[in-house]
């Protein structure tokens, strides 16, 4: 019956060529800025236990949901600037902007906080787009730094139908974020949404001047949530408490219990003040290649296998 090559794969050639070129540019950017590229194991005994992230089991271990823990153990061992481009797996995540197996770019710096990572994002994107312009879905996005910043508290004041405190108390934080805030964020400029409630940042450091919020930000460009970053929590005792809290909530919801990443917690004691960020490469390619569906920027979607 088939008399020609599979067109749903063949048609991706142009985008896949662009993708390869963009990833080479990303790599060159970090190498030039003196970051060490590392590879860490994809199959690990324990991920960071997080309430809303489900890992894919692999024999008696798990596929990584992020290379975060190994990256931070390297920082704790004295490496100062690291990056990694790798695959991550998150069970059950599938949409036009989600793949259960996807490509992640993570980079980490010691002796700085999350504000430095905002500057890194600005530098990376303006290097990929030297004319500071992205055309996406008929909209021009102006990348000229510095990019606008909005606290989560202010976003709730501007866009939410209920106060932040109410949303947290009634477990409506995520639905307000998804249906009232995210769709209304400006599309003509990138945006850093920052200072998340501590309960929504289990591995991030609390802000010293206002400990109800954590030093975490999300980068949005053109309606896509592109990257999540924070100043790292470096206190092993507090980290253990936060993991225990996440685990308790997982159990309460009847989710699979996860083991605690013991060596990570132990070695946090030697982690200098640091900051790290995870950026979804597939979404970045969607943004730069003006694609609306994540399937269009990877060689195979799960349904095509």
């Amino acid at each position: 019956m088939m008399i020609e090559p599979n067109w749903q794969i063949a048609r991706k050639r142009h985008t896949l060529e662009n993708r390869a070129r963009i990833i080479q540019q990303i790599r060159a950017f970090f190498i030039r800025h003196d970051f060490l590229e590392v590879e860490t194991p994809h199959r690990i005994p324990a991920n960071a236990p997080e309430l809303n992230i489900d890992a894919v089991p692999a024999a008696d271990w798990f596929l990584q949901t992020s290379p975060e823990l190994c990256m931070k153990r390297l920082l704790a061992a004295g490496f100062e600037r690291l990056f990694q481009i790798c695959h991550c797996w998150r069970a059950g995540e599938r949409s036009n902007t989600h793949l259960p197996e996807y490509s992640m770019l993570e980079w980490y710096r010691s002796h700085c906080d999350y504000r430095q990572l905002m500057a890194d994002c600005e530098a990376l994107l303006t290097e990929l787009k030297p004319d500071h312009r992205i055309f996406r879905q008929g909209q021009t996005i102006d990348l000229t730094p510095p990019w606008p910043r909005l606290t989560v508290a202010d976003a709730f004041l501007q866009f939410s139908s209920m106060p932040l405190a109410t949303a947290l108390a009634t477990d409506e934080f995520d639905s307000v974020m998804a249906f009232e805030i995210e769709p209304n964020l400006p599309k003509d400029r990138p945006l850093f949404l920052f200072e998340y409630p501590v309960e929504h940042a289990s591995l991030a450091r609390k802000k010293i001047s206002s400990p109800a919020v954590a030093e975490r930000f999300e980068l949005y460009i053109g309606g896509l949530e592109l990257a999540n970053a924070f100043s790292e929590l470096t206190d092993p005792v507090e980290q253990q408490q936060r993991f225990t809290m996440e685990e308790m909530q997982r159990r309460k919801l009847g989710k699979t219990p996860y083991p605690t990443p013991e060596p990570f917690i132990k070695e946090l004691a030697t982690l200098p003040p640091s900051a790290g960020i995870a950026l979804g490469i597939d979404r970045l390619i969607m943004l730069l290649c003006d694609k609306n569906n994540i399937d269009d920027v990877v060689s195979f979607s799960p349904e095509q296998l």
């Binding site: 059950g92 995540e93 949409s95 998804a178 249906f179 995210e182 998340y196 940042a201 949530e225």
Partner: peptide
């Protein structure tokens, strides 16, 4: 059908 998941938030199935 639309799956959304804001940040590290919960999965929402609209």
């Amino acid at each position: 059908y639309d799956f959304t998941k804001p940040g590290k938030g919960q999965s929402l199935y609209k």
